[in-house]
């Protein structure tokens, strides 16, 4: 190996630092994410809205087969950007992790716990030999159980299922279910951050500045006022539209969305896809503004 190729080597192996302390393969992986169609997440007071643009390259392509937002547990979903094949592996890892947590601890995994576990898994691929980093980033959106009912009104030991042989959590149908929505971004380097609103993929910078204006009125010190689910969905789709300039306008074929928040009283499901009808309606309302 001659001198010049040895000097180049730090940009080949991702486990090798460059002289100025950078991991080029990880940065290239971030570049791959930037080329992917964008996914957006917005935290509202009623739950988290995830929305994403789908690249439907041909009218012959079945739009439903382009998957950007994936349910990973009944209270969690993952939106992706970047290499779709890599992203699918992360989704699979997330789903298994959710079930593993239930098996091990008998309770659903928390949003931040899943995000940090995914980040650990992603980071491992940047430090071990024979692997390459994931060319995908994910938004983890979900709801954690909110603060329980007033302790004085909590069920007496007799009501509790301490004597149950099974460990099925009872639904709190009697009391109003409160939730704590949370949104995390995990990047190919394996770092994760919590956000009130953010994006990954193509046009992230524009989308993020749009969200900063919408959610904070440009004032970064302001608290997000209480935001309804519907308003959050509208903001998320509007944010995606900011990057649609050179593309066809958004339609239910090219956009997909999911809301994480309390579902019907009778069900423990908290991860609900937004239907085409509603997407159509919200997009039309945005169009007419």
């Amino acid at each position: 190996m001659n001198t010049s190729s040895r000097q180049q080597a730090y940009d080949r192996g991702h486990t090798i630092f460059s002289p100025d302390g950078r991991l080029y393969q990880v940065e290239y992986a971030r570049e791959a994410v930037e080329r992917g169609s964008p996914s957006v997440g917005v935290v509202t007071s009623e739950g988290v809205v995830l929305a994403a643009r789908k690249r439907v390259r041909s009218p012959l392509l079945e739009p439903d087969s382009v998957e950007k937002i994936h349910r990973v547990d009944e209270h969690l979903a993952v939106a992706t950007a970047g290499h779709a094949a890599d992203a699918r592996q992360l989704v699979e890892a997330a789903r298994k992790r959710c079930q593993q947590h239930r098996l091990q601890y008998g309770e659903p995994i928390g949003v931040s716990v899943l995000a940090s576990d995914l980040a650990d898994h992603i980071q491992e691929q940047t430090q071990s030999g024979g692997t390459r980093p994931y060319g995908a980033a994910v938004l983890v959106g979900g709801v954690d159980p909110g603060p329980g009912p007033d302790p004085d009104s909590s069920p007496t030991p007799d009501d509790r299922s301490a004597d149950e042989i099974e460990s099925e959590p009872e639904h709190e149908s009697a009391t109003e279910r409160t939730v704590q929505p949370a949104l995390y971004e995990v990047d190919p380097g394996g770092t994760f951050y919590g956000w009130r609103g953010t994006a990954i993929g193509d046009g992230t910078a524009e989308i993020r500045s749009f969200l900063e204006t919408e959610l904070d009125g440009g004032d970064s010190t302001a608290e997000t006022p209480s935001l309804t689910r519907d308003h959050g969905l509208s903001i998320a789709l509007d944010a995606l539209a900011t990057t649609a300039a050179d593309d066809r306008p958004l339609s239910p074929t090219t956009v997909t969305a999911r809301v994480l928040g309390p579902g019907p009283e009778s069900s423990s499901e908290q991860s609900t896809p937004v239907g085409d009808d509603e997407l159509e309606r919200v997009l039309a309302a945005l169009e007419s503004d």
Binding site: D73, E74, R95, K96, C98, Q99, Q100, R102, L103, G106, E166, S167
Partner: peptide, 11 residues
């Protein structure tokens, strides 16, 4: 067993 079966069916 029930915990494992529920996890498998959820997946």
């Amino acid at each position: 067993f029930v915990r494992r079966l529920r996890a498998e069916l959820a997946l």
